[in-house]
Nucleic acid binder design. Structure first.
Lengths: 108, 108
DNA sequence: AACACTACTACGCATCGCACAGTACTGTCG
DNA sequence: CGACAGTACTGTGCGATGCGTAGTAGTGTT
């Protein structure tokens, strides 16, 4: 099956979600998402999403040179990002319940 | 906001769902989906999805010439389609609860 | 020296919903 | 009766986005 299509438009939400508590860098965000159950998420998708959110002004970023490996580009959610997160969450919930409704009718 | 991306990979499921009870033609399926809450679904999307599902062997079709308007191309779900519906529904439920989980963690 | 792991970037592809335009038929209203 | 709205379908092309793949670069392990 193709779970990748289901991520469309939702990966933004998921990334914002895992960043809400603590700042994170790309590789770390990937791990958090997978730990959260999104096992199939591609790393390139996450890096791309981070850049998109950053360009959209929802994240700030700062580089931390690591002494044990390559540098890490940390991303931090700002107010715009939080607003977007709240908004997207509502959109998601509404959409999910609508679809569940359609599926329920079928089962009945 | 952009609800259209959320439909990705789910419109198939929704279309199969509304066809499960009764056969339907394109224009009618659009109405059923909108009545079910998917207000923003585009008609071209539905027609395209119907054709895709048909080509994938999940629907059969027959034309009914209407005496009051253009002909209607009815689509009927078959066994393959039903199997796909059940499968996709499970995929959806699993995915949705995973994402809800990620959002819950955030709220906590 | 070879390999694995971490960490990021960049290119190009595939999917899929959608806007738009076009065809065609029916009924209604001025 | 002519213009318009509603019904019903088809086809073209676009845009957003997740992903595969490759490349770069640093560190540690065997």
């Amino acid at each position: 099956m193709d779970t990748s299509q289901l991520l469309k438009g939702v990966l933004d939400l998921a990334v914002l979600a895992v960043l809400r508590k603590d700042d994170g860098y790309g590789y770390d965000v990937v791990r958090r998402l997978r730990a959260g159950g999104l096992n199939d998420v591609g790393d390139a998708s996450v890096y791309g999403t981070l850049r998109r959110l950053y360009n959209a002004g929802m994240l700030t970023s700062y580089v931390v040179p690591s002494e044990e490996g390559p540098h890490r580009k940390y991303y931090s959610i700002n107010e715009t990002g939080r607003a977007r997160l709240a908004e997207s969450r509502e959109t998601w919930r509404s959409f999910a319940s609508t679809l569940d409704g359609l599926l329920e009718e079928v089962a009945a």
